[in-house]
Design a protein around this nucleic acid. Structure first.
Lengths: 338, 338
DNA sequence: ATTAAAAATGTAATAGATTACATTTTGGTA
DNA sequence: TACCAAAATGTAATCTATTACATTTTTAAT
């Protein structure tokens, strides 16, 4: 395993020159550059990034913490993050908490030991917040940005990119109300406390505004999976008075919901309307195509990464969250009550 | 930013002792251990992993290269990889090539510069193979394992975990043939050359075996996305003699296919049967539920990571690919020809 | 040709944890 | 108490690329 030293010897230059070859090649004379190029080829040298990172005190790695890699919406956000990261010369390291079920010790350790130049949290992670609050200063951890998730008070100091979850949820609920629905169920995604809280607030707000009773029996805690959408829907269908519409905190639960409704012999939207959140790519081709609130996932990812870069570069970033627009996409899973 | 040196001074011990505190704590006397613990708390020390990695010559990072993070099947594999990686103390760094559309320079660089202790390729990546073949010896890159993908000749030296794609595809085709289908279309996933090749071979093998003509018009190149499944299906439906069954190289294309068939006024499976590959979680709840070949994604991930660990630890691993079982899951998107 | 300024290159210190080897301490036994 | 082996701890070299600072070379103007 050859080092700069050997390359330098082979090329007849100093190690500093070899280093400059990689970092500020324009400083070298053509002739010198050629000598180094040849020496590298001859020795088969390849840089030891560990040494470089150590010496420079940075890794060019951004850690993204994500509740689950399998959720299509997060996939979109990641795509946006990656596009910008690549532009800026960062690599992405993804930590999947598998919906908070994984032990956080190692992850926490990562944060406080220079392993990342920046951290993106997609969602809020209680164990992580604990660790953060234990460390008062921000000296011993890299810059952090929390996207998709509204900042709960304890992490409100971090910048954030997201949609306005409350008004998005209000819009979804009002869409159902405008179609004449009154018994509207809500399936939350309890795993992401903040978002879910805001969305539930938006739902309640809309109900109140239109003077509709919110029946607590119609409000359930889901975990954002298809399976949970199905489970909860089965429960709702067995209710004495079943809902005429179901608002789900994400599309996957909505798809599970539709499946169970149809499976029980009822029709969507004729008997029950269903509306989701995120506009994942399966929403358009579901049967019936799913009405949903679209989040601009890639845009969220890009803006998040841009902001993080700014912070890393030391540019002042205002701490107000960046709100990107959501959009109600009306397809065929919602209809007027008969 | 405190270092071992300061902790050592604070604790009244040597830097070696502090280092041992982290690496071989059982070597320290209780009293000493306590002194160090206190000193760490007092100084707010946290280890500089950059220095550690550099000194040790390893990162505890495994790089996983993946065609697209959004593909559910890869999500399953990743989950398996992560489970084992965590057990073994490795972090996962994911590189998403976005279906080979991303520039590979940086990625290639990653491989040859000690940034990873091991590399998992999920699928085969031509630009990467180029880089590999340029470097004769394996001295200057970490161990590599290629999973999901059958090893094309140029990378056949790497260990691999996967299903037997050819016979899986044969099984899928024979399922359709046993239902009386003769005009069977195949939509490939040209992006993963190896897999796609094997699956196409399996399809052709089954057709031949049962003395059925393979019509080249019925064989198309897809890119594994819903969108492409839809595009190609529209073409197939406009054919003079349209197929009575469609075999897709993955479930996402199959779902797109079903959507377009239904959209054109035909019924699945009454008019056209559709069968997919992977058994992603949306397959079960599609309408109709999708017949498909299940791959044990998590198992593939786990076995891959175990093997990689063995190689990293220097244990001899036999180079024959590890074949895991596939399973034909018959749901309702396939039926006898009328 | 001379010289000052600019450009190119060289020298050597440096980052912080680890570890081979050296030294000291401990615990148990004669 | 003295002594030995084993356990604990200390000393200092080491890993490799970068970079501040020093020195040499080149360029261009007189």
């Amino acid at each position: 395993m050859s080092s700069v030293k050997e390359v330098a010897k082979e090329a007849g230059v100093s190690t500093a020159t070899v280093s400059r070859y990689f970092n500020t090649p324009e400083q070298l004379r053509d002739k010198t550059r050629k000598k180094v190029t040849d020496a590298i080829k001859k020795t088969g040298y390849s840089m030891n990034s560990l040494a470089r990172n150590f010496r420079r005190g940075k890794t060019n790695v951004i850690v993204v913490v994500i509740p689950s890699i399998g959720v299509p919406h997060f996939g979109d956000v990641l795509k946006g993050i990656e596009t910008v990261a690549r532009q800026k010369g960062f690599s992405i390291m993804i930590i999947d908490t598998q919906f908070n079920t994984m032990p956080f010790d190692k992850m926490t350790n990562t944060f406080f030991s220079n392993q990342a130049d920046g951290i993106i949290l997609l969602g809020s992670f209680s164990p992580f917040k604990d660790a953060l609050s234990r460390s008062k200063s921000s000296d011993n951890h890299p810059p952090i940005i929390v996207s998709c998730e509204n900042a709960t008070p304890d992490i409100s100091d971090f910048p954030s990119v997201r949609i306005d979850n409350e008004s998005a949820s209000t819009a979804a609920t009002e869409h159902l109300i405008s179609l004449g629905h009154q018994r509207i169920a809500y399936i939350s995604g309890s795993l992401s406390t903040g978002v879910s809280g805001e969305r539930e607030a938006g739902y309640r707000l809309a109900m109140e505004k239109h003077k509709l009773k919110t029946v607590e029996d119609l409000i359930s805690d889901g975990n954002l999976t298809i399976e949970d959408g199905r489970r909860i829907t089965r429960r709702l269908l067995n209710l004495h008075q079943r809902p005429t519409a179901i608002l789900c905190a994400n599309d996957e639960m909505a798809l599970g919901s539709i499946y169970e409704i149809k499976n029980s012999g009822l029709r969507v939207p004729d008997d029950i309307s269903v509306i989701g959140f995120d506009n994942i790519r399966y929403a358009e081709i579901s049967d019936p195509p799913l009405t949903t609130i679209a989040q601009p996932g890639e845009e969220i990812g890009e803006k998040t990464m841009y902001q993080l870069c700014h912070i890393i570069e030391g540019v002042e970033v205002n701490s107000a969250p960046t709100i990107v627009p959501h959009q109600l996409i009306i397809r065929s899973s919602t209809a007027s009550i008969k």
